[in-house]
Computed example of a mutant assay.
Amino acid sequence: MKHPNLEPARAALARTVLALALSLALSACGGGKAGDAAPVAQKAASQAEGEHKEEGGLKLTPEEARSAGIKLETLAAQGFADTVTVTATIRPNQDRIARVAPRVEGRIVQVTASLGDNVKAGQVLAVLDSLALGEAQSALQRAQSAQRVAQSDFKRAELLSADEIIPQRELLRARSALETAVADMRAAEDKLRLLGGVAAASGRAASTFPLTAPLAGTVVQKKATIGELGTPSEPLFSVADLSTVWIEANLTEDKLARVQVGAPATVTVTAYPGERFAGRVTYVASMLDKDSRTTPARIEVPNKDRRLKPEMFASATIETGATRAPALAVPSGAVMLLQGQPTVFVAQGGGYEPRAIDPGEKVGGRTVVKSGLKAGDQVVAEGAYALKARLLKSQIGEGH
């Protein structure tokens, strides 16, 4: 059967054919008997009516149906787990993100990481040159030199004291000087370490130091540019472990009581139609936002293949633990728009007939059908887009 919206045109065509037949019959009356007109008109009307009632929908051979990937599903009422569906935004896991800034002010002399790079823990992101670090290196070298001198003086004093060449107080003075030199050296080492530097092995003061990644992840923010000044107050990089992401949503008051921490949830994004990502509710805020009158909630979702990107919009379906009354539902992919009307294809009369429906909410990848279908109908669960394309093509052909 053709699309339902074509019925008025077909009816008009039938009426036109009938009128033409009657006209011809009346014309024939002028050259014959009056009774001869009735069979002619009746035959024409019968042909027109037969054409008007022609049914069967889109016809496909078994080979064409297999090529189009058509799969049927017999409808039956089924129960569904009660769910709450909310719109959400994907965020990085805030427990696995690091904002990397230098401990001391320095000029950026080298950048080794780019935005989007996957880095390991301890990997160098940039190199900076710091005057304060150079001074700390010099102070450490002076302290190390003083410690070596004090160590040498103490050893000599020990030998002389053992031979009773110098008094005991000289030995005590040498020991005190050594302890002071060791304390100064350790203080210089601590200062250098706190500034993010390490003692130079070459013996020369080094003013450069590396800025490293504190954890393995992806560089999601980069502000480092060679020649600019890096400061402790302004992170140069942000590194995030995106193997798990947070799906952040806001629950309205009517949905709040139905969502519990630990509830299973599924997430869909427009970038991957038909795919569902499983997660679990890990957080529901204790307070309501006074402006939006909503409560923030969080779903944690594994993301090992890194396909879910921060700041993507998503739709999250959260299970409440309750069960709904049985209802008819079709795969959401089977529903499409034909002339603005949600429609599915139904196998009927040896063909595939488009059937307008009144869709309800989506639950678990299926769409509840309020009206337009009945139990036992065979719905095209897969391959509906191929049928839609054939239908539109046939309509275009008829238009010409």
Rank of each mutant, 00 (worst) to 15 (best):
L6S: 07
E7G: 09
A9L: 11
A11C: 03
A11N: 05
A12R: 08
L13T: 15
R15H: 11
T16E: 08
T16N: 12
T16R: 10
L18M: 10
A19W: 08
A21S: 11
A21K: 06
S23R: 13
S23Q: 09
S23F: 08
S23L: 09
A25Y: 08
L26K: 14
A28L: 11
C29H: 06
C29V: 15
G32W: 06
K33E: 14
K33G: 10
K33I: 06
D36F: 05
A37E: 04
A38D: 08
A38F: 13
A38I: 14
P39Y: 11
V40N: 07
A41K: 02
A41V: 04
Q42P: 01
K43D: 05
A44C: 12
A45V: 13
A45Y: 09
Q47C: 02
A48Q: 01
E49G: 07
E51F: 11
H52M: 10
E54Y: 14
E54N: 10
E55P: 01
E55S: 15
G57A: 04
G57L: 08
L58N: 09
L58M: 02
K59F: 08
K59G: 09
L60M: 03
L60I: 07
T61F: 14
T61L: 08
T61P: 04
P62E: 13
R66W: 13
S67P: 05
S67V: 09
S67L: 15
A68C: 10
A68T: 06
I70T: 01
K71N: 13
E73A: 04
E73L: 07
T74K: 06
T74R: 04
L75D: 11
Q78V: 07
F80Y: 05
F80L: 15
F80T: 08
A81C: 11
V84L: 04
V84N: 03
V84R: 02
T85D: 12
T87S: 10
T87L: 14
T89M: 11
R91C: 08
P92G: 01
P92W: 01
P92Q: 02
N93P: 02
N93E: 07
Q94D: 13
D95T: 04
I97G: 07
A98Q: 10
R99G: 05
A101H: 10
A101K: 03
R103L: 12
V104N: 03
R107E: 00
R107L: 00
I108F: 02
V109Y: 00
Q110K: 13
Q110L: 02
A113Y: 10
A113T: 06
G116W: 09
D117Y: 03
D117T: 07
V119W: 03
V119D: 02
A121K: 13
A121R: 15
G122P: 07
Q123C: 05
L125N: 01
L125H: 01
A126E: 00
A126G: 01
A126H: 00
L128C: 00
L128R: 00
S130F: 07
S130Q: 01
L131Y: 11
A132C: 02
E135M: 12
A136D: 12
A136V: 11
Q137P: 11
Q141D: 07
Q141A: 15
R142L: 10
R142W: 03
R142Q: 10
R142M: 08
